[in-house]
Amino acid sequence: MSVQNTYTVTGMTCGHCAASVTEEISELSGVTDVAVDVPTGAVTVTSDAELDRASVAAAVTEAGYQLAG
C-alpha cells in the first residue's frame, strides 16, 4: 500500500532547487517517488508507509530549504 503526502517547501526557485529537495527526500527509508512543483512549492512524496514529518523536514533542511507550516 502506497501513502502519498504533499508538503509545501519554501525558497525553491529553479530546477536545481527541486533536484536538491528530491535527492534528500528520496534517501528517506520507504520513499518510492518525489514530485516537485517549483512555482507552488508543492512536494508530493509517495512512500511505502507513513513518513515522520520531522524526518521529511530534516531532509528538506539538509537540501537548504524549509518545510512550511
Rank of each mutant, 00 (worst) to 15 (best):
T8P: 11
A54D: 07
D52Y: 07
V3D: 04
Y65L: 11
T61A: 12
D48C: 13
V31K: 06
R53Y: 06
N5Y: 05
D48E: 14
V56I: 01
T22P: 09
G30L: 12
S2T: 05
T6Y: 01
G11M: 11
A58D: 06
A63D: 03
P39M: 11
A54V: 09
T40R: 02
V9F: 01
E27V: 13
T10Q: 08
A49D: 03
G64E: 05
A68Y: 08
D33W: 03
T61D: 04
S47D: 03
R53L: 12
C17N: 01
S2V: 05
Y65F: 14
L51Q: 12
T22H: 10
G11I: 02
E23G: 08
G64S: 06
T32I: 01
S29C: 02
L28T: 06
S20R: 14
V45A: 11
L28E: 07
I25P: 05
S55H: 12
N5M: 02
Q66N: 13
A54K: 15
C14N: 06
T40H: 02
S29W: 09
D33K: 09
V38L: 09
D37K: 09
S2M: 08
R53E: 04
E62F: 14
G15N: 03
A63G: 07
T22R: 10
E62M: 15
